[in-house]
Amino acid sequence: MPWFWEGLKTGVRTLRPGAVRLPSGVTPGRPTTTAVTARDRFDANICPVGALAGRDAGVAVDFDHCIHCMRCQPPKAPVHWQNDYRWAQAAAPPLPHRFQRSIHVRIVDAGDCGGCLSELRQLLGPVYSLHRYGIYVSPTPRDADVLLVVGPVTVGMRVALEETYAAMPDPKRVVAVGVCALNGGLFADSFAVMGGASRVVPVDVTVPGCPPPPLAILHALELVTGLSRETREVAES
């Protein structure tokens, strides 16, 4: 009982949906395609993963490979960094309409370093409170509508991932969370890594980032349900 009063006294810690201004730090930001005038100052090789490419009019960024190493952050490179978080992309239509109000997700750690999983824990925590959107983490794949895969798929986790996917009922969607789950990321060349969830299960929605912040993962889940919320928030710079 004392904890109950303590909780009431603390009040609401959750970010308000639709809040126009969000606290800075909810996203690490990422480089964006930038027009540069002084192109001679720019060296695409500063990017250790080859996500930057010089184009005629500026710098193009391959988000699927960017790992936020910040080596291209100004003043090191004339690349504009943007504090947004709507990073997810869908390759499949949303789930049928009846899933809009409530979905159950299953999380599989397929070799994550801990970063993406921690962001998922934050998403479930008090500040982002995923449950208020009717999104629940399912204790069993039999009840799950969405599979969240984090980490490059290691050889050891391949079977567990395949079996989890097979155990889920149709219709279902797979979300690859983080650069590693997209294509293996920095670990892609390892002999013990399959390299991206799509090598093992069909991926429908991708959210890049290393790690993607909680709101970016939430954006991916919005694409799965097809129910877009007030999402015009821009993080303070």
Binding site: E6, G7, T10, R13, P23, S24, G25, V26, T27, P28, G29, I67, H68, C69, M70, Q73, G115, S118, E119, R121, Q122, G125, P126, V127, Y128, C210, P211, P213
Partner: peptide, 24 residues
């Protein structure tokens, strides 16, 4: 949840002052 809120606040401050939530 009270402690988890502190953790998230520290992560936000990491990004705000140091550029990355996990100091990568």
């Amino acid at each position: 949840n009270l402690l988890a809120a502190v953790e998230e606040r520290l992560l936000q401050q990491s990004a705000r002052y140091l550029g990355h939530r996990y100091l990568f």
